[in-house]
Design a protein around this nucleic acid. Sequence first.
DNA 1: ACAATTATGGATATATTTGTCTTTTATTAT
DNA 2: ATAATAAAAGACAAATATATCCATAATTGT
Lengths: 146, 146
Amino acid sequence: MFSKATEYAIRATIYIAQKGNIDNKIGINEISTSIDSPQHFTAKILQILSKKNQIISSTRGPNGGFYMSSKALKLPVRAILKAMNEDTVLEKCVIGLNKCSEIKPCPLHKQYKLIKLQLIQLFENKSIEELAEEMKDGKLYITNKK
Amino acid sequence: MFSKATEYAIRATIYIAQKGNIDNKIGINEISTSIDSPQHFTAKILQILSKKNQIISSTRGPNGGFYMSSKALKLPVRAILKAMNEDTVLEKCVIGLNKCSEIKPCPLHKQYKLIKLQLIQLFENKSIEELAEEMKDGKLYITNKK
DNA sequence: ACAATTATGGATATATTTGTCTTTTATTAT
DNA sequence: ATAATAAAAGACAAATATATCCATAATTGT
Ligand code: FES
Ligand code: FES
């Protein structure tokens, strides 16, 4: 459904939201090992999320690392998709027509539009903060490591 | 959601189901122009669908082309996904964990599993034949061309 | 000031996907 | 038999996604 880059982006962001704050920034090494992703590739992704899109914040130097502002924590997961230019998945025609619309619907449109609506809600209605909060009981996972 | 290859595979198959039969085989040129896809790339895809996976049939030479057996027409759209090795989309974790399961669920699993179920049903419950049939009123589209 | 730390940025490498072009093989009609 | 037709097959090209490595810049603590 999503690219590896976007999958890592979501997992990394949730991890940062959960573990980091302005006084306890998280290094890229901890992040990538904790979510089981390639370190340097993940670093690039975090740059995207921190650069113009202000989803995560970072500082360099000792005790530097990544964290999220309380404002950013309120963003929906969909903000990550948008930053990664993969929000299109929530708009596209499921069989690849240039435009998904009621005017020129594909044979799967009628059923798929209902599913797509739920996908949009899934990524729109939950904030990053809420997801991170839900993780704190230890019964949810964002890594493959044991 | 799906690769271009799979999108073309679905559109091409629906087109063949709708227009072709054993006595009226459809050429790759007509198919690719009719569904607005790159011809030779589409040809390769149709080879996959006709080779070991017997979703479409073909014959060479004059009056040759592609068609579907009545047996193949009864297959669900999901058979195309399987042939294209993209059935995984209906099984994978939405944020890329190696395994989507109740045992080690990701933070989006609880909600996403309901959506995934509907996706599976969408591709499982409708046969290729039914989709092709529904297209015959002319109000559904599988092309970008006007 | 200096050394250590950590993100940033750039260059490069590899793999996969997508797409094109040419040749070959099978089939049909004459 | 021969020529025409159309898919099959293979070689190649381009674009994109994924991943690694190294140098640079910013920050901190001493
Ligand atoms: S037109 Fe295909 S999903 Fe809407
Ligand atoms: S574990 Fe992530 S969707 Fe099921």
